[in-house]
Design a binder for these strands. Sequence first.
DNA 1: CTCTCGCCTGTTTTT
DNA 2: CAGGCGAGAG
Length: 747
Amino acid sequence: MIILDGLNPAQREAVEAVEGPVLILAGAGSGKTRALTHRIAYLIEGKGVDPASVLALTFTNKAAGEMKERVERLLGRSGRGMWVGTFHSVCARILRAEAEHVGLDRNFAIYDSNDQLTLVRRAISALEVSDRQYPPAQVRGRISRAKNAMVGPAEFARSAGNIYEQTVAKVYQHYQREIRRSNALDFDDLIVEPVHLFQEHPEVLARYRERFRFLMIDEYQDTNRPQYLLTKLIADGRRNICCVGDDDQSIYRFRGADLRNILDFERDYPEAKVIRLEQNYRSTQTILDAGNAVISHNKGRKGKTLWTERTGGEKVVLFRCANEREEARAILDAVRTLRGTAGRTLRDFALLYRTNAQSRALEDEFRRAAVPYVIVGGLRFYERKEIKDILAYLRVAANPRDGVSLRRVVNVPRRGIGDQSLAKVEDFAFAERITPLEAMGRAEEIEGLGAKVRGAMQRFHALVRGLTEEKDQVSIHRLTEAVLEQTGYLEAVREEEGTVEAESRVENVRELLSAMEEFSERAEDPSLDAFLREVALVSDVDQWDSRADVVTLMTLHSAKGLEFPVVFIGGLEDGLFPISRMAENPEDLEEERRLFYVGITRAKERLFLSYAMDRRRYGSSGESHPSRFLGEIPEPLIERRMPGMFEVEKQSRVTGHGSQEAVTGQRTLDPRLVTRDTRPRSGEVSGAFDFEDTLPFNVGNWVIHPTLGRGQIREKDGVGPETKLTIRFDTGATKKIIIKYASLEPA
DNA sequence: CTCTCGCCTGTTTTT
DNA sequence: CAGGCGAGAG
């Protein structure tokens, strides 16, 4: 059978074990997705299983999309009908279908962590609790943790031991009441509610068990308690559950992920078959050795050792840098040097870091050098102010009960409806048992409002009413244009700020409009409701386009599941990685180590690590020390370098005359011998060079891997991928340099 | 109700 | 150092 071809014995076993519980322990780069997709294909094609009875759960839309695509590639259209999606999107789908059992309207809103925070703040102020003693972010964290432990407000209140907890309990209660009144769910509810639904409605559960006879879960090590319960509830029907994961790559403990789910799989399913995928197809032996060595310092593991047939490989390069700026330059230099060698283009490079803030220094250098890059993560597109504003209008139109969104836009752009007036509206709404939006429609009846405010409220009410009526009649794109026109949003933005900021905002709104058009063309269900649901559940990595030829910058967390020929991991300093708060508790430290392991194992060919001896942390600078994790990599695997030292890779050659040795092949040059063009140029190779810096230099489209001393170009010969230069140095030596470089365009 | 200024606080990671 | 938030004035 074609589906079984090209699989190694372990993968094959994973594919063929379709009945009963199966745990696939899949090491990094071991062909996990391959095994999973082939397994699904085998089920459908080989075993004649109806695609509609297959449910595959992932953590990111990207992973889900990839899985779907690859199964379809194997099966053609016959894979249609299976459910492949993230936990969150599948749950949203189930809740929508079963809304009446949950006490929600089908068009419920999904609140992200920012919306949550707004709601927590409101609860705190409504309860007249001090937000200094109870920082909203912290309280939100407590509520989220409670939800992930399946503890509701009532139970939380019962078990609250001290004043602090009792107060949090009150906020939690208020929060939960408000979010329900808003016909909304937060990310945690999205998973928790289906669990409740299944627990309380056996007949509903039975329906889903009947439907999903084959359950597959990717990244099982990252499941939290509600996710675990959810899968267990469904799987306990037919017990055809296949979990794929790697305990060494569990990095979401802070989000409630519970490593015990994977470690105790065999206890939950005693008849389980456990399959280990240990052959790595991604990395060189050296990189794998480094990774294995690091992760072996962890205690709580299932234990497995990755191996590869690809022996050897370049050593792991470690840069010791004076500060973060020098670190950024060292990385930039390495990218420029390696670019073009071995056919590498910019998309082959990934710069990984522990915290988003670290991207700044890298960004500065790359921007200055005009090397194109993308940053994944940080502030997401859909979290930008202007985008959230527009979306909030749409969310209110879709779900008029959405209180958080209503508050967000009621006075944006300014309409003169402030907190005072809004409070009166809310009191009135509460007394009349109507929504605040409806209350605004009846502004005439509300006492103590000025005539102006009343008018503004009625106009606002009419605006939203109009949108609600139109929302299913016109495309989301048209609807959004209506919002922009009727609110004068863009004009207001332009007026408010200096043109620089404002223009980029306007630009972002345009981007939103085109994203909507794209959605309308692509989506099965192009409705506003569907769009809002998708938007609430996309992450930045989902949108990352691996085809663009640019360097990728992202956090180690975002990098999970991806691979790159060349990987840089920066900021390997104690206190930053591992982050100081995580270094105190052994379990947290192990998680940091797993994160490092994830980073290392993203690399296929080359791995560069770096640390700075002085790192600025909020403004002030401070002395840093190399990360303890560095000491866990065996010394023979490491090549230590100073920034500015670079390698002349095999394709570039410098031939010497006179006293200079020919430099061929790969070696490291003394930084003093290296140079940089100090003048701006535009394609013409000529003139004098100042050989005093320590970096390779650009001449037009070329990068010259430098030589020594000071000198001038005497001759040049050839254009295209190979140019010969003759340089006469001040020392009297003459050098011929052959430049071979496959730069694409002047960056 | 809006705006401005200045203080303060925080950087862990995200569906 | 930055962005967010509160206080106080117009």
